[in-house]
């Protein structure tokens, strides 16, 4: 994904067991913080249509 220009940090993978609730919470917090820091993803937003 990064190769094609998607900013690093927008995609993440984790392996979390159904028993690892604390890890789940941590990961979600981390990922949301990283994405929020990056701001809105304008790359994949379609420009307004002009006739």
């Amino acid at each position: 994904m990064e190769h094609m220009g998607v900013e690093p940090g927008r995609l993440s993978f984790s392996w979390i067991s159904s028993a690892e609730s604390t890890k789940f919470v941590e990961v979600v917090k981390d990922v949301t913080a990283t994405v929020k820091a990056l701001g809105p993803n304008n790359n994949f937003k379609k420009a307004a249509k002009v006739a």
Partner: peptide
Amino acid sequence: RIEAMTAPEKWEYFK
């Protein structure tokens, strides 16, 4: 050559 680019450069390159 593309790997060496920054993310915005890659984006522009493929554009």
